[in-house]
């Protein structure tokens, strides 16, 4: 699948400093939906897409990982990514969420909601140039 997830998790550690595209610095736990939206707007070439979780299951190919199935953007394109269960995703209007909030708390000290089917996550794509 042409999707990538960060392999170095340190930016999810509570207290990690995140630089928005506006130059503003925020802690990872303080980020809000609008921070991502505005950052994409001023970045140029990047677009925030709404990615709805449509299925969550254990990865068949990579034991220990979770396969997350998304429908992405207006075209409802199907994308699947394999991630560790503690990997946080930012859900619109809700904030950080993961398949295993307990593991996320243990590893990153980052408070998460349970990620569920129907959640709409923040993702980015390259903006289509006409």
């Amino acid at each position: 699948a042409p999707a990538s997830a960060p392999s170095n998790p340190s930016h999810f550690m509570k207290g990690a400093i995140i630089q928005l595209a506006t130059g503003e610095l925020k802690r990872v736990e303080d980020l809000q939906t609008q921070d991502f939206v505005r950052s994409a707007e001023v970045s140029g070439g990047l677009k925030i897409d709404s990615s709805m979780v449509v299925d969550i299951r254990a990865s068949q190919q990579k034991p220990g990982l979770v396969s997350l199935h998304f429908t992405v953007g207006e075209q409802q394109s199907k994308v699947t990514i394999d991630v560790p269960p503690e990997h946080p995703f930012f859900v619109f209007g809700q904030g950080w969420s993961s398949c295993s909030p307990e593991r996320t708390a243990q590893l990153y000290d980052l408070a998460c909601h349970p990620l569920q089917v129907g959640d709409v996550c923040v993702s980015i794509t390259l903006q289509q140039q006409p």
Binding site: P2, I18, S39, V79, P88, S123, T125
Partner: peptide, 25 residues
């Protein structure tokens, strides 16, 4: 008191997945 001064700063886009559609026109 140790004041952390060399705190790494991560770009915002490293936090969200890059989900490229598998189907294109």
């Amino acid at each position: 008191n140790v004041e952390p001064r060399s705190v790494p700063v991560f770009p915002w886009h490293s936090l969200v997945p890059f989900l490229a559609p598998t189907q294109s026109d």
